[in-house]
Amino acid sequence: MSILVKNITKTFKNLTAVNNISFDVKEGELFGLIGPDGAGKTTIFRILTTLLFADKGEAIVADYDVVKDYKSIRNNVGYMPGKFSLYQDLTVEENLAFFATIFGTTIEKNYDLIKDIYIQIEPFKTRRAGKLSGGMKQKLALCCALIHKPKVLFLDEPTTGVDPVSRKEFWEMLKRLQKKGITILVSTPYMDEAALCDRIALIQDGKILEIDTPQEIVKHYPKKIYDVKTDNMYKLIECLNTYEHHYSVYPFGEFVHYTDKREDFNPKDLQLFLEEMGAVNITIQPTETTIEDTFMELAK
């Protein structure tokens, strides 16, 4: 077991940021903490990286206790905090060299590990970090967190505010790192990224809603979801919300995800209802459940 969290609780003044949370991450696993801002993700990261004490409960990282053996943990983990922004006035190379030295290693020694990522930013190695684009900054930050070959990598919202292209590239990099045997705990507010993890914990308001593989989690969804579409989205949502049998109505891309209260729901009934309400170009079709659907159902 690479990370073991047992009944951790942390309270700030009158806010319970983390409420009796337990989970474990296996060696070499890519584990995702999925939840919105304020769910308690950052607090969990800080407890596991020995930056904060939990009020209650215990946690083990890479076989070390986060309280007793905090020094060993600090030698064995890589951490990329949410607001991490490198030293803007140092060049790419200087930033990396600096982090290598404080971790008691050199760029050459662990070059293998970061090679894939570093060659993408190497052409700019004499450029100051402050002048890099968002995607490149993020790659450099990842290199810096990896330079000492950590056993466990903690990434707190690495893709927040990053465009879809850079996000996709970033996840591809994580997958490759995972193959090299590094355990990764990553947090994200983007539900679509959850599917890329081995296992995920859905988290909101300091509580874990569910832990499982992305595939299993969607199976737990109790209802059959239908994609509904007409030519006026706003009116459609209003209509569906007035429909007496509706269970949930959420816009989802170009469709509305609709579920019905009845076990024996027949889409034709809905079709008729919408026609009566004056909707045109009605499409109603069954669809796959997504993690976001599950999250909303659990968070309700």
Binding site: T50, R74, N75, V77, Y79, K83, F84, L86, I102, C144
Partner: peptide
């Protein structure tokens, strides 16, 4: 402010 203090704390330095 930069967030680098967190990294320094978590490092062996």
């Amino acid at each position: 402010e930069l967030g680098t203090m967190e990294i320094l704390l978590v490092s062996p330095i």
